[in-house]
Design a binder for these strands. Structure first.
Lengths: 146, 146
DNA sequence: CAAAAATAAGACTTTTTTATCTTATATGCA
DNA sequence: TGCATATAAGATAAAAAAGTCTTATTTTTG
């Protein structure tokens, strides 16, 4: 079980962070990304296709091709990747799973979770990939391969 | 996709809250709970078995049997149900899915998520089902059946 | 122009999760 | 005692998610 995001989304987030840590203009192929993140190449490849079609990353076919950020790092946020892969439903659903959870019929943690959910959303949307770059580079350079 | 908890866990939480909203000594059978929560009887029944074996709820077989809280509502917390069904791993994993995420190699949201994760844990563990009772009763009386 | 290397696309397989079915066992009551 | 009605338990089925494979297409380079 993942924490909040699906496996696909986690890998998508990691892959885009990986790309954002590269020097501008540098392209990475699927094999390289898969190797660094320690996930199957075909799987990461498929996820990157999704992100390509939504414009978050760009791709170039053929020899010496690969993937790269599709927009300036200043304009990309983690929430954009989440939105493209898992969608934003989790930011509107009751954490206890009650179907009709709203202000007039709130679940016992409705307000508490509402606050935490908003803060989670902010965590993913208030910083651009450019803002996160130093931490991202540090993480990418210390990837753990078990 | 669920928010944080598996479907089983969500239904387990809802079912236990449902039981905690009953008058003391009142027993509910699986059919009744399934009907109110709008989920299959056999599914809720199976989840209740898990919770029975972990002592969170009690059960009585036979005619007029059913399920009931296995401990005083003052001693039960939402985190106990989560722990019994999904486990507590999600409170130790990186939200972006990085394998070796720790203080010396933190992901770009390591600290932010750490704080939110702790507050989520507190949300689920600082109140007993007794503390939540009024809100729970209100919710149970306003269950939405789509 | 041909070969090599890369992504694109979609079919397919496997694994996990969710849901259902069946049989056994326990309880209460006529 | 026998029947109706519960849960218990485990097998099975269905659905969803994760992962793999194959073929097509594109691009660079010799």
């Amino acid at each position: 079980m993942t924490v909040i995001f699906s496996k696909k989304c986690e890998i998508g987030l990691q892959a885009v962070l990986f790309l954002s840590a590269q020097e501008k203009g540098v392209m990475c192929n699927a094999g390289e990304i898969a190797d660094k993140l320690d996930v199957p190449k075909e799987f990461v490849s498929k996820i990157l296709q999704t992100l390509t079609s939504s414009g978050i990353i760009g791709s170039k076919k053929g020899n010496n091709g690969g993937f790269f950020l599709g927009q300036p790092a200043e304009q990309l946020r983690l929430i954009d990747i989440v939105s493209a892969i898992d969608g934003l439903k989790i930011f509107h659903k009751c954490v206890l799973g009650f179907a009709g959870c709203n202000m007039s019929a709130p679940c016992p943690v409705h307000d508490d979770w509402g606050k935490l959910r908003n803060e989670t959303y902010e965590m993913l949307s208030n910083s651009s990939l450019a803002d996160l770059r130093n931490q991202t580079i540090n993480k990418i350079n210390n990837l753990y391969k078990g």
